[in-house]
């Protein structure tokens, strides 16, 4: 009696959003300077808009910390281990919130060009063309 079949050790792949959706931005660090004028917008953002923004995005851990003598930044840390940093010097609160939204919505992956209209793990429903089926070409 011999085994007729063997199983290959493969593992399933994640499809974020098909079942559960995990927001890829997991931490946002907001740095400001108490002294410098380029942080004025950032400080107003932190005081006025951040509570609302944080409450709307409970999946993200927000850290506010001073960075004296430097321009203010927003740093997004992502699940894939990468990070994205945006310098928000001299920006108005309304511009800063757009940058925060950009970091929140980003996947953290490097930006790459996609030439395909559809990218999918699933096989084509129609199948691949086969010259051996259907009406065959006769010389």
């Amino acid at each position: 009696m011999a085994p007729t079949i063997r199983a290959l050790p493969l593992i399933s792949k994640a499809r974020n959003g098909v079942g559960a959706f995990i927001l890829q931005c997991k931490r946002m660090e907001l740095a400001y300077c108490d002294f410098g004028g380029s942080s004025n917008g950032m400080k107003r953002f932190i005081e006025r808009d951040l509570p609302k923004f944080a409450a709307a995005n409970p999946q993200i851990e927000f850290v506010v910390h001073p960075r004296p003598n430097h321009h203010p930044t927003i740093r997004g840390l992502y699940i894939n281990g990468r990070e994205k940093v945006v310098c928000v010097r001299n920006m108005h609160e309304s511009e800063i919130i757009q940058k925060a939204q950009l970091l929140r919505d980003s996947s953290g992956a490097k930006i790459k060009k996609s030439n395909k209209k559809v990218t999918s793990l699933n096989e084509s429903v129609r199948g691949v063309f086969s010259p051996y089926h259907g009406e065959q070409f006769k010389i």
Binding site: A2, T4, R6, L8, V18, G19, L121
Partner: peptide, 29 residues
């Protein structure tokens, strides 16, 4: 629901796991 969302929703091609030693004989059996 959590299990379905996080585990069953993952992509897995079951067809690729099979590795037959003697496919023709097995089919005959």
């Amino acid at each position: 629901e959590f299990f379905k969302a996080h585990i069953l929703s993952r992509h897995f091609d079951l067809e690729k796991v099979f590795d037959f030693f003697t496919p023709t004989r097995t089919l005959s059996r």
